[in-house]
């Protein structure tokens, strides 16, 4: 098992190998992603019962919660990739981190905007400066900062390093987001999904939510593949295998 993982790690370090294998992997993520998102959306919008307090506005949960979970998960992955780059000097890890940043930022934006739209009918306001919302906004700014640093320096190497360091420092914000609803008095409702205890949600509402979360993650994987493939082509553009590839396209 350990040996197999080590082999996979070393292969992942090879841009050419990744480029070739990811072409074969892509449909296995893209198609299930589309299926999950379609089934989850139709189920959540048309078939799940309305919430007894919030009515139909609660259906926003089916995008708000998956987007928020993904925004945080993506950030952690980006920081881990950055750490791998810093410690083991694995170039592929830096390119994956660069691929994740704009995707994560877009889902963070999505979580914030759907939260604001949901807040209006539920709390009577688009925005409050409470702990959960503020820490989530900070996450968006951290994404922007990492994206800027990844392109800021003279060389690709120092840029990637700078981005990786900020992403690791910003990791401290992730537990703050998670526990913000418990540590401070916030308008935001506490977590609906819990790993260690039973969820506070009825089954017929919960299942489409879980499908949507899986769908968002599969979509995320698809998008990482697409963007990392571009990063590989760009950074290896002077290598003969990429040159051949481009020539063959014409």
């Amino acid at each position: 098992m350990w040996e197999a993982l080590k082999r996979l790690y070393h292969r992942m370090g090879s841009p050419k190998w990744f480029y070739e294998i990811s072409a074969r992997w892509l449909p296995w993520f893209a198609i299930p992603a589309a299926l999950c998102l379609i089934v989850g959306t139709v189920w959540g919008l048309a078939f799940a019962p309305a919430d007894y307090q919030q009515g139909n506005s609660f259906r926003i949960i089916y995008i708000h919660v998956p987007a928020a979970i993904l925004a945080q998960g993506a950030y952690a992955m980006m920081a881990i990739a950055g750490g791998i780059f810093l410690i083991w000097r694995m170039k592929m890890a830096a390119w994956v981190a660069a691929a994740i940043a704009p995707i994560g930022a877009s889902f963070c934006f999505l979580a914030l905007i759907t939260g604001a739209i949901w807040g209006k009918p539920t709390w009577g306001t688009w925005w409050v400066w409470d702990a959960r919302l503020t820490s989530m906004l900070l996450l968006l700014f951290l994404y922007f900062g990492v994206m800027a640093l990844q392109k800021a320096m003279e060389t690709d190497d120092t840029s990637a390093k700078a981005g990786a360091i900020l992403s690791l420092v910003g990791l401290v914000n992730i537990p703050i987001i998670k526990y913000s609803v418990e540590w401070w008095n916030t308008l935001h409702q506490p977590a609906t999904l819990k790993l260690t205890e039973e969820s506070t949600m009825a089954m017929e509402m919960l299942i489409p939510l879980l499908i949507m979360i899986v769908g968002f993650y599969l979509l995320f994987a698809t998008l990482i593949f697409m963007r990392t493939r571009n990063e590989v082509l760009w950074h290896e553009r002077k290598k003969s295998w990429v040159k051949k590839l481009i020539e063959a396209e014409k």
Binding site: I63, A67, L110, I113, T114, K120, P121
Partner: peptide
């Protein structure tokens, strides 16, 4: 009554 909010969210998504 929540159509505007719900559809706006799904549209942006």
């Amino acid at each position: 009554k929540h159509g505007f909010y719900v559809w706006l969210c799904y549209g942006i998504t």
